[in-house]
């Protein structure tokens, strides 16, 4: 693919891919400027790998954006400590916005802990709310594979939803 064609295709797809990358990052970060940085880095990488992405580029962009966020989460301990302190503060002053920020921090932590393939499935299935069939198409695997990873990831991720274990049916009798 020559550069002219690559550029034309990329520019045409840019608006949709950018908003996908941006929202995926924003869900985890809750910060416009930081999410915009992640989206731009994601789209730059998408350009580099454009030839290979074909119809699965949307899934690629979303999972790459999340990976970039989580990579920063893992590497920057000072940044993580700052967010831990923030989370601790938030627990004392609970309102809807603070709840959301706490949930974002939980999501980062839990997604970072998931094995790679589980994380990809979890991001597309739960963070993006896409149907199993669509996730399978985006990742290029079977629906059975998606369900297998989704089931494992769900057990870990549900804590991010703030489900009270006392009322969680899954704990009854356990």
């Amino acid at each position: 693919m020559d550069r002219t064609r690559r550029d034309a295709e990329f520019r045409e797809a840019f608006p949709l891919l950018h908003v996908r990358a941006y929202q995926a990052a924003f869900r985890l970060l809750g910060d416009q400027a930081a999410a915009e940085d992640v989206a731009q880095e994601t789209l730059t990488r998408a350009y580099v790998h454009w030839i290979r992405l074909d119809e699965r580029r949307e899934g690629w962009v979303v999972t790459t954006a999340v990976n970039i966020v989580l990579d920063g989460f893992r590497r920057d301990k000072r940044w993580r400590r700052f967010h831990s302190d923030t989370a601790a503060t938030l627990t004392t002053t609970v309102d809807a916005e603070d709840d959301e920020q706490t949930q974002r921090l939980d999501l980062q932590r839990l997604l970072a802990a998931l094995p790679r393939r589980q994380r990809q499935v979890a991001v597309l299935r739960y963070l993006e709310d896409r149907p199993v069939r669509e996730v399978a198409d985006l990742l290029g695997c079977s629906t059975g594979t998606v369900k297998r990873h989704a089931a494992r990831a769900a057990a870990t991720l549900r804590t991010a939803l703030g489900i009270d274990p006392a009322t969680d049916p899954a704990t009854e009798g356990a």
């Binding site: 520019r11 929202q23 924003f26 869900r27 416009q32 974002r104 739960y126």
Partner: peptide
Amino acid sequence: MFRHLDDPTPPQPTDLVVDRIVAEG
């Protein structure tokens, strides 16, 4: 199920931003 965490007003990148990304890519 996490849509409530979305930014209701996502920024619209300008042509300049797109140009910069293409150049860096």
